[in-house]
């Protein structure tokens, strides 16, 4: 396996599009194939902005630095191009798309990856979808429901994991996927990520979280602490445990100083 990092973020500065507001103030980060990185930080530290920026959210704008994915300049690409290159973001707040079934959505997503004029085989797709749902222990009827429309918080997360399982990304960004989740929903997410990692050990994960508890279910290789738009500490899982004990206050003070 090629061990060169799949994602390289260098000196990234960014803010809200069309506003003079800096959120990221020089972020450096490298994630190797198969690695799980967690970014922890208090509210407003910029950790979620980083995930959205990598996925290509139009509400954020890079003002300096670079993001390379698999050797390509990600910042130059449209969100759909990034997805096709292998980036996937599980949303903190998945969007409701009334009238569009999950199956139809996923079929279109896979179709979009084909060359012009090439047609996705519907039987192959059905088979893939069934197989993926079985892997995640999901009820087949779920795929016929309209995307996130009237879903509970847990069902929305389940849907994010199913999409990830079907699209098989090289890099999964989990944008505060654990916020506001009860323990059952948290485990759905964790089990899903772990199952997909088992299947494809080369899949990298960037886990954005405010809390330590999801890290009891998904074991990170590296934990970063982000405060004030910068990564202020990186280390092993023990960093998360220290945070749990002492909170972000120390980092905040250090950063302010």
């Amino acid at each position: 396996m090629d061990d060169s990092p799949i994602l390289v973020v260098t000196g990234l500065e960014a803010g809200v599009a069309d506003e003079d507001l800096d959120i990221l103030k020089g972020v450096d980060l490298a994630i190797g194939p198969g690695e799980i990185h967690a970014i922890m930080g208090p509210n407003g530290s910029g950790k979620s902005t980083l995930a959205k920026l990598i996925a290509g959210h139009p509400g954020y704008e890079a003002t300096g630095g670079s993001v390379e994915f698999d050797g390509e300049d990600l910042l130059d690409m449209e969100p759909d191009e990034r997805a096709q290159a292998g980036v996937f973001m599980a949303f903190q707040y998945p969007v409701e798309i009334p009238g569009v079934s999950i199956a139809n959505f996923l079929r279109t997503a896979l179709q979009s990856r084909l060359e012009d004029g090439e047609e996705l085989d519907l039987f192959d797709f059905q088979e893939l979808l069934m197989e993926r749902m079985e892997l995640l222990d999901m009820d087949v009827a779920f795929a016929q429901r309209p995307v996130n429309d009237g879903f509970s918080g847990g069902e929305k997360k389940r849907n994010e994991i199913l999409q990830m399982a079907v699209l098989k990304p090289a890099l999964a960004l989990m944008d505060e996927t654990d916020s506001g989740l009860d323990i059952d929903a948290l485990q759905i997410v964790a089990r899903g990520v772990n199952t997909l990692r088992e299947e494809d050990p080369a899949m990298s994960v960037l886990l954005i979280t405010h809390y330590q508890r999801i890290l009891n279910h998904i074991t990170p290789d590296v934990v970063h602490v982000m405060v004030g738009g910068k990564i202020v500490e990186s280390g092993g899982p023990e960093v998360a445990l220290e945070l749990e004990a002492s909170g972000y206050e120390e980092y905040r003070k250090a950063h302010a100083a």
Binding site: P79, D80, A109
Partner: peptide, 9 residues
Amino acid sequence: FYLMSRGLH
């Protein structure tokens, strides 16, 4: 954005 982030043009 949600749909495009799954690869849809």
